[in-house]
Design a protein around this nucleic acid. Structure first.
Lengths: 166, 166, 166, 166
DNA sequence: TTTT
DNA sequence: TTTT
């Protein structure tokens, strides 16, 4: 239900722990402060100057719950959402506009930290109270393979059939 | 349910009418041939050389139905999907690999043609039986939402509440 | 020179003609107001409610020149840029933050209107001195082809060689 | 120089060390095998079934050099490129099509591994012979910039002025 | 303020 | 306010 495209893709680090709240209905809403870094060459000095851009990210639903549970200050994360600007009034009664990256059911989130052992020696045992992508650790070092389909018919139809959530 | 990101974004024109098929279950599967144009400067001649890249796109579900109904040869379209390579055997029994852009429930499609005279005075003559983005145009992708918001509180929480299909 | 990813992709329509300015050095800077449309189902009424999001887009360099010359109020356009928030003071001396989509040399712009009367019988009245993607009209209706490379070697190296601007 | 959009965004892990070659002109060309993981719910069993998609990635120029130097089997990486299909003949003289994700000067690459200590205790001292994102880490993509900006004027024009390589 |  |  969109007559346009409104997409934001970010990879950055959290400036602080996620701020988790709940709607009256118990739905999670998480706010993140996400930093994306860039650097540019100063025209005068020829020096590389670092530049950080801060993004306000708002997550809803299941993604919010996961984010609230696993992300922490410093976490690196991939975010896909949409731009949204809210208008509100400050205490002086003036209009203020805030632009946020909204990650809802159509968005995506990927935690990019190498999991685990950030404190003791726990190489994959996620420390209590701060589980980070524990068991779900990414499939690394797999040998390239190419599995699924076969049969002499190039048509894709038969392959997918019904595991696909139409 | 992804431990990675696999995203393709294309804007191009159809090389031919969509090829619509149906699974035994009655689900639509549409194949498109999509051309994206680019040009580069030839190093020898300094000339701008046009280069067309052709993409095989496979769509499923509701998006496929809309595509099959409204898209035609020459239609300009925005596509968001994922890369998938299928392996099959040709008649000689040799392995063949085909890479496609799969647009499923997580993908998106936007028709970019200026609509075709769907009223009467067809401005560029959309022939009958060849509807181009007529008025009935398609609800492409469901998207949760949040109410516009206002009031003197900057927190986004109250606004969304419960129109969001968590 | 980026240690993160900061990418925005929009397809929408201009709310007004582009605002073109120039730096003291003669570089074009163009501001656009871009609307992206979406609709959502109201939870109470079950009705589809349209929702428009407005984006402030700032373009630089060559892209800005093209945008200023060819885009007009109502133009449909594809934009790729990055998020940037500027802080400034209003007349009351208060800090104000403005978030913009910056389209610079790393960004992209694609005009998506079916070109305007490039012959004479302007179908929607492209005023003189207001060329809209005229001759450059997109290659439509081409038959799918698959040209460039050949030779029995699968390695990509030989093909590109030196037309590629390394 | 594009009359369309052809963009691929991937986050995945290398199935093997990068394959680095050089053109006669000494330009680096690197081939990667990149795995993106996904899982879907099997319709019969209700089980989550993991599914890995393998992508052939070809990089050119400076990005290729960085990739060849710092990426290794298992490395997690963000890739932005474009789809390209090459046609070649196998030893039997038959046409074969290979689709690749091409990362050239317009593309982007981001290494996503937490640096270092992959063997001994070196937390950031990259072990000899297997440098991973050492301090020297790569200037991946040149990006124009704008100075932070301030002052009481909301217009972006004055800020950028001339560090931008128009 | 655009578009459908 | 993060990260390198």
């Amino acid at each position: 239900m969109a007559r346009g495209v409104n997409k934001v893709i970010l990879i950055g680090n959290l400036g602080q722990d996620p701020d988790t709240r709940y709607t009256p209905n118990g739905n999670a809403v998480v706010n993140l402060n996400l930093a994306t870094d860039e650097s540019y060459k100063d025209r005068q000095t020829g020096q590389l100057v670092p530049k950080t851009e801060w993004h306000r990210v708002v997550m809803f639903g299941k993604i919010a719950e996961v984010a609230g549970q696993y992300l922490r200050k410093g976490s690196k994360v991939y975010i896909e959402g949409k731009l949204q600007t809210r208008k509100w009034q400050n205490k002086e009664g003036q209009d203020v506009y805030t632009t946020e990256v909204v990650v809802d059911i159509n968005g995506q989130m990927q935690m990019l930290d190498s999991r685990g052992g950030d404190g003791g020696g726990a190489s994959q045992g996620a420390p209590a109270g701060r589980p980070q992508q524990s068991g779900a650790a990414p499939a690394q070092n797999q040998a390239p393979q190419q599995q699924p389909s076969q049969g002499s018919m190039p048509e894709p139809i038969d392959d997918f059939d019904d595991d696909i959530p139409f």
